[in-house]
């Protein structure tokens, strides 16, 4: 177990360093950042002053070195539009809103998908199974941001039950969480259903039934614990996906999180901030993956040895 933890942690640290390198060159290789930010017709002196201020006069390798050193000390640069404000501070202010939305979306997905997939998988071909399969398919075919707009039209504009934008209490969380969690819910239903289909043919389930154990007890005592392992293993991936998907949903619902911050940073051509958000979200995602992998190792001892 110890070696497994050390190996996975080292892998994650390497990936994080890789992300820092990749993001730096992704932004630099595409041309002169100055021309992306300062208008082409701006006076030469202004362009040069900006170049000087951003440290873009230094050789690339020097820029890269100081960028890496800063990043490893938790310094992700300063925003262009909000002079002097550290990118990390701006991100930290927005982070709780995104976390709240992502966790709510994940909770919605799990609470709907797991019971539905379990019920459908235990009785293949039944009415509840048809519902489960339809929900699974709908998750693959309905774009989240479009669903978000439909929910606004129905529940906010037409019925007037829930607010259509902003972050103001629980009622404002419902629509964005449903829209964001919908695709993941579809995937989880399919996964749970097919895991149940596999498990219910297993010897220990057949034995339980042969002993006369009834439906619900079999589900909770024997099927669910074994289905939990594949579900936990995709939750980390799901969460990463939600972080990305939140960009669209936060824009639709004007949710004041990291996603809408990224969108406005792009609109303002605030490149240092775009770079910082990308790095932050990626490092965050890598950490989540590491945590779920370690948790997975605890749940399933077979994995530690491989």
């Amino acid at each position: 177990m110890f070696r497994y933890v050390v190996r996975r942690t080292l892998e994650s640290v390497l990936l994080m360093l890789g992300v820092l390198v990749l993001v730096f060159f992704m932004v630099r290789l595409t041309g002169d950042p100055v021309s992306l930010i300062i208008p082409m017709d701006a006076p030469m002196a202004q362009r040069e002053a900006f170049r000087e201020m951003m440290g873009l006069n230094e050789p690339l390798i020097v820029q890269f070195g100081s960028y890496m050193l800063d990043a490893m000390q938790g310094d992700l640069g300063t925003s262009l539009r909000r002079r002097g404000e550290a990118n990390l501070d701006i991100i930290m202010v927005r982070l709780p809103a995104t976390m709240q939305l992502a966790f709510a979306a994940l909770a919605f997905a799990v609470l709907v998908a797991v019971p539905l997939g379990l019920a459908g998988g235990m009785r293949p071909g039944s009415a509840i199974d048809r519902v489960a399969r339809s929900v699974g398919l709908a998750g693959q075919t309905i774009p989240s941001f479009w669903l978000g707009m439909l929910l606004i039209v129905l529940f906010a504009v037409t019925l007037g039950w829930l607010p259509s934008f902003g972050r103001d209490g629980f009622s404002s969380l419902i629509l964005p969480a449903v829209a964001l969690g919908f695709a993941g819910m579809g995937q989880l239903v399919r996964l749970t259903r097919s895991a149940v289909l596999d498990v219910r043919r297993a010897d220990y389930v057949r034995t339980a039934r042969a002993k006369g154990m009834q439906g619900a007890r079999v589900s909770f005592r024997h099927v669910l614990p074994n289905v939990a392992i594949p579900i936990v293993s995709v939750l980390g991936i799901q969460f990463t996906y939600l972080l990305g998907g939140s960009v669209y949903i936060e824009v639709v619902f004007a949710w004041p999180g990291l996603g809408s911050l990224l969108e406005s940073a792009i609109r303002d051509a605030d490149f240092p901030l775009v770079q910082a958000i990308t790095i932050f979200i990626s490092l965050f995602a890598i950490s989540i993956h590491l945590l779920t992998d370690l948790l997975y190792g605890v749940l399933d001892p077979r994995l530690r040895r491989s």
Binding site: L243, V247, I281
Partner: peptide
Amino acid sequence: LLLSIPYLVLVIVIATV
């Protein structure tokens, strides 16, 4: 490395550039 960056964010950043 590419798979470790949340895909939707990766795509947005590259599209911007």
